[in-house]
Structure formats: structure tokens, C-alpha cells
């Protein structure tokens, strides 16, 4: 197979395992490209891509922009805070105005779940979801699983625990879908207030004791506590959270194996993980960031090949 089965990347749900494998093998090629002395290929030189960020982002937005530029696409950036959205324009109007300027692809982050799906039904451009509310963040899940594959050789059969604020996390949901598709075993771990009630219907184990979870796991993906999405108190204090669900070197060293530590960023050092853990050899946090560019190049390239001339 050399084409994706989808026309937009709206979520991991809806992808097939072959799609993910195609994205991975294409990303392998781009990873070689971004480590060359001249890190650029001309594939998308005739395309214009709009990055629409209706919600704050540093890493994802930079990563997409670098990926687009490495592929030689023209890039326009847009952030909601400095736009007509604050004057009351609707999403479709905003995007259609941008598309009238002949834009071929849209990378969008939006606070509302399903914004990408909604947009794909109303406009004529390839859409990549860069995070929609607490719903999905597909490129993050792709780069996470890609990084696991890189470090451990394979994703199939590996045990991955996702720790922290599962309830508000689009990274968790996309990761669960992707890990399931690739044949990994998944567990979620966190305070019971931050674990959605019917999460087991997605085929994941649930554990509230961090030590037990880490003893089981090969990989721990530590999520950030999303204070900005929490409208009420889910745990008594940050200090208590970090004592119950934070990973430090003592805890890591007391395990009888070396587990891989991941974090989608931005890290609250001292809350989810301590500085020593973040900077330890077991951590692949910076590999995740590097792989993010290669994965996003692969997704952009594969979707671009589906644009009719």
C-alpha cells in the first residue's frame, strides 16, 4: 500500500493499521532527510498550507511549521487571539476566507472537540487535526508510537501505561487508539477523578496505584495536568498529586527493569516527573520532539499526494 485510506487526518480513530505503518515508513525516510547537511526537499513547493491555531501551542505549531518548510511548502500562520474570531466571525467564514486565497491544506487546533470533522464537511481542503479540545491529537499519538518503535524495535506486544489527567487529555485518547491498532497493551493510571468512567470499553486496563502500573509497564507516557481545562478541583493539591502520581529517580531505580519515560510536553518539572527523570537516559522526551517533525512531514506528504491537480 502506498496511499493513505483517508483524505484528512482528523483522528487516529478511522485509520487502519496499514495507514500508520505507511506513515512510519515514510517518516523513516524523512528522518534521514532532516539529518542531512541540507534539510530540505522540494516535494510540496507548489502547495500553500495554513496553520490555524485557535488555541495556544508552541511545540506542535513550531513542529508543523518546520515540517512544512522542510517540504518547501508556503506557510501562513494564524492565531485566534489576533484575528477576526474575536470580532465574532464563524469558523466556516474564517476558513473559507483563508481558502479564497488559494490555500491547499489546513492544519488546525481548536478548543472544541470535532472542529476538524465539522470543517472537513464544509470546505474543500485537506485538513490535519492538530488537537481538538479533549478529543484527539493524532500526530502526537503517531510520534509517540513511532518513538516507542524506534527505542524498543516494535510496538506490538509492548506494555504502555499512560499516567495522569486522562479525562482532559486528547493525547491519551489518540494514544489509546494508536497503541490498540498497533497491538500494544495499554493501561491508564491516575487519580480516579481524572479517569473517565467508561474508559475500559476502549480495551484498556485501569490502575490507580502508580507503583503497580510502572511494575507492569515497559513504557510510561506521563501526561501534563491540564489546569486550563479543569473547571473544578479533581485532586486536593499539586503537592499531593506529585507525591501520588509523580515519577522520581527513587521510584524508577526501585523497579527491577529500565522502563522508557515519555512526555508529550510541556513538562511541569517536579509535578509529573522530576528534573532528573526528564533528563535521564531512560527519557526519550527530546527524541519525541525530533520524531514529531519527521512524522508531520510524512503526514503532510502523504495527504498532499491525494490533492487533485
Amino acid at each position: 500500500m502506498s496511499q493513505l485510506s483517508v483524505n484528512h487526518l482528523l483522528g487516529i480513530k478511522g485509520l487502519k493499521r496499514e495507514d500508520i505503518e505507511l506513515i512510519f515508513s515514510t517518516a523513516d525516510n524523512f528522518k534521514e532527510v532532516i539529518n542531512r547537511p541540507i534539510k530540505k526537499v522540494p516535494s510540496l513547493r507548489d502547495l500553500t498550507i495554513a496553520n490555524l491555531f485557535f488555541e495556544n501551542s508552541t511545540r506542535t505549531r513550531l513542529s508543523f511549521e518546520i515540517a512544512e518548510k522542510r517540504l518547501s511548502a508556503d506557510v501562513v500562520n494564524f492565531s485566534a487571539s489576533s484575528s477576526s474570531v474575536s470580532k465574532g466571525e464563524t469558523l466556516i467564514d474564517t476558513v473559507n476566507n483563508i481558502l479564497s486565497m488559494k490555500v491547499d491544506m489546513v492544519v488546525m487546533r481548536h478548543p472544541n472537540p470535532g472542529a476538524g470533522v465539522f470543517l472537513s464537511k464544509h470546505i474543500d481542503a485537506r485538513i490535519i487535526n492538530a488537537g481538538d479540545g479533549a478529543h484527539e491529537h493524532p500526530t502526537q499519538a503517531l510520534l509517540d508510537t513511532y518513538s516507542i518503535r524506534e527505542r524498543l524495535g516494535n510496538v506490538e506486544g509492548k506494555k504502555v501505561v499512560i499516567v495522569g489527567d486522562i479525562l482532559h487529555s486528547r493525547v491519551a485518547l489518540s494514544n489509546i487508539y494508536a497503541l490498540n491498532l498497533l497491538g500494544a497493551e495499554v493501561m491508564v493510571c491516575g487519580p480516579s477523578t481524572l479517569i473517565p468512567k467508561f474508559i475500559h470499553t476502549l480495551g484498556v486496563k485501569v490502575e490507580t496505584d502508580l507503583r503497580k502500573a510502572l511494575e507492569w509497564a515497559d513504557v510510561a507516557n506521563m501526561l501534563r495536568v491540564q489546569h486550563e481545562r479543569q473547571d473544578l478541583k479533581y485532586f486536593p493539591s499539586i503537592r499531593e498529586y506529585s507525591q501520588m502520581y509523580g515519577v522520581d529517580m527513587n521510584l524508577l531505580n526501585s523497579l527491577d527493569k529500565d522502563i522508557v519515560i515519555m512526555h508529550p510536553g510541556p513538562i511541569n518539572r517536579g509535578v509529573e516527573i522530576t528534573s532528573e527523570v526528564a533528563d535521564s537516559p531512560q527519557s526519550i522526551i527530546l527524541d519525541q520532539v525530533e520524531n514529531g517533525v519527521a512524522i508531520r512531514m510524512a503526514v503532510l506528504y502523504l495527504l498532499a499526494s491525494k490533492i487533485d491537480r
Binding site: 525516510n29 532527510v33 526537499v41 522540494p42 516535494s43 517540504l71 506528504y301 498532499a304 499526494s305 490533492i307 491537480r309
Partner: peptide, 9 residues
């Protein structure tokens, strides 16, 4: 592959 001029053609 990424340098071809017939990408998408």
C-alpha cells in the same frame, strides 16, 4: 522520490 517533478501528476 521527494525531488521528482511529477509528484501528484
Amino acid at each position: 522520490t521527494f525531488f521528482r517533478d511529477d509528484f501528484r501528476r
